[in-house]
Amino acid sequence: MSVIIVFLAVIAGISGWWLSQQRLMSKPWLEQGVIDEHGGSLGPAMPTAKVGLGVFLAVVGCLFALFTSAYFMRMALSDWQPLPMPGLLWFNTLVLVLSSVALQVALMAARRGQLDTVRLGLATGGLTAVAFLVGQLFAWRELAGEGYLLASNPANSFFYLITGLHGLHIVGGLIGLARTSFRAWTGTPARKLALGVELCAMYWHFLLFVWLALFVLFAGWAASFIEICRQLLT
């Protein structure tokens, strides 16, 4: 359960840092009158939707950290046989990186008000994400074709389960992206799109990060890395 503990420690660190800004040591009974937060400006400093997405990503992160924890604990048992990584996964990774970059470009364009570039970025991002999903399906087929079936080894079970859930999260993201794209093609000015595009980009970067972490995990590098750390410590 060490992975999830580390993950929660990071969350606790962020929450602790935030709480430390909240005057938790103050004596509220001595204070009367209006206290304005956020440096005196009115209203919250960050858009609510962004905070909401941030909290949601923490939950998603928690989910994948827990799967990783379970993966390591199950891996320690004797019947574990790592499965080979299809070369296609490298290509998929590249496509997903591209997708993330495209949305980042769309975001920067939205901030500058260039609607055409926003549309281009959104379309590229969406199509590459779909391509990633298709690529994942092909990777599944390739593995299944080579006899690495879901139930034949826990390593396979974890691979299909976790990549499947990651794919489902991308599908969910595509729905959000579709909504933003719809607005981009129905006459919303680019600057008003900025928040929507930013949320999509944030989500995409996060899922890219999760994918990279999972890739490291499935390729067995994570386990070797931990082994090296353990040897250094002892």
Binding site: Q22, R23, L24, P28, V34, D36, L42, M46
Partner: peptide, 12 residues
Amino acid sequence: LQGRTRGMTLMR
């Protein structure tokens, strides 16, 4: 986090 009215600090 976001919806508190003016003056409603966490410690209130």
